[in-house]
């Protein structure tokens, strides 16, 4: 599979602040690639460089074989972008938003009308076609932004937090649409800070923290590598800490009042904890991407 986006030593500075700190990654054609990370990790900044709307400070970045600082218009022609911030045109209706956007891509009027209607149906917005966008719910706005991003039949779709602030139904609807698009061969690059979303959707992902990529790969493999098979989760008490230090093979992470012990032998860990230390609540479960996240960023990702 050829790579459609390739970044090498990519850096972005805002004055003294290093928002993206020398990252390397590649995205293969047709895959759904995720950027996971807490707020301020540098995800949006990276997306904006791929979109050619924010120049890089140094390093190299190529999209579909073109350098971002040389072929910006050509690159933007093959991209579909759904930004984190709503920037739908409040002066127009739902349908007209798509038509006006199509015009920026030089799409002929008849063709634009055909695509706009098709996309409104695909995104379940057909009933809202003549409504001004201030009358749309948050979920509908996100869907319209996604429809707008598809108006030029993009080869690459860039989605910055596509499901932020949505209820579960709306979120699942968007997930379904993304899967459908992927099966049509569209390359999708998305950022998220929802673990479940990344685990469910992404073929491969990177986790960013403080401008750096801290790990990358297939979600299930990352989990196995970084957090083992299981996690034993309990409250931090002095006796517990003494026990945990006794485990030689296990890695652990303390977050707030909780301690997470990553292990391949949960039964052993659990029985030792129960027999030798006084425990509060304890929980044993399979490791997830969230555990990897906590290990690598030292942060809990609950909103």
């Amino acid at each position: 599979m050829p790579s459609i986006v390739v970044a090498k030593g990519l850096v972005k500075r805002f004055g003294n602040l290093v928002a993206v700190d020398g990252i390397d990654f590649y995205v293969e054609e047709g895959e759904l690639f995720g950027f996971l990370g807490p707020n301020g990790a540098g995800k949006t900044t990276t997306m904006k460089m791929i979109q050619c709307v924010s120049p890089k400070t140094s390093g190299s970045l190529e999209v579909a074989g073109m350098k971002i600082d040389e072929k910006d218009r050509e690159i933007k022609r093959i991209l579909g972008v759904a930004p984190q911030e709503n920037n739908l045109d409040p002066d127009f209706t739902t349908y007209k938003n798509l038509l006006v956007y199509a015009r920026y891509f030089d799409i002929p009027k008849a063709e634009a009308e055909r695509r706009a209607k098709e996309l409104l149906k695909f995104m379940q917005l057909w009933e809202k076609r003549d409504v001004n966008i201030d009358k749309l719910s948050t979920g509908m706005k996100r869907r319209l932004i996604l429809a707008r991003a598809l108006i030029n039949n993009p080869r690459i779709l860039i989605l910055d937090e596509p499901t932020i602030g949505l209820d579960p139904q709306s979120r699942h609807l968007i997930w379904d649409k993304l899967r459908a698009l992927k099966s049509e061969g569209v390359t999708i690059i998305m950022t998220t800070h929802y673990m479940e979303e990344a685990e469910q959707l992404c073929d491969r992902l990177v986790i960013m923290n403080l401008g750096k990529i801290v790990t990358s790969g297939v979600p299930a493999e990352i989990v196995k590598e970084q957090a083992g098979k299981s996690v034993v989760e309990t409250n931090i008490l002095p006796k517990v800490m003494k026990c945990v230090k006794g485990f030689k093979k296990e890695k652990y992470e303390k977050v707030g009042e909780k301690i997470y012990i990553y292990t391949e032998r949960p039964r052993h860990v659990l029985s030792t904890l129960i027999s030798e230390c006084e425990l509060g609540k304890v929980q044993v479960r399979e490791s997830t991407l969230e555990d990897v996240f906590i290990r690598l960023t030292g942060r809990e990702l609950k909103e």
Partner: peptide
């Protein structure tokens, strides 16, 4: 306020 320019520069327009 409307972020109209942000939306447009994501298309072939600079």
């Amino acid at each position: 306020y409307q972020k109209t320019y942000d939306a447009i520069i994501s298309t072939p327009l600079n």
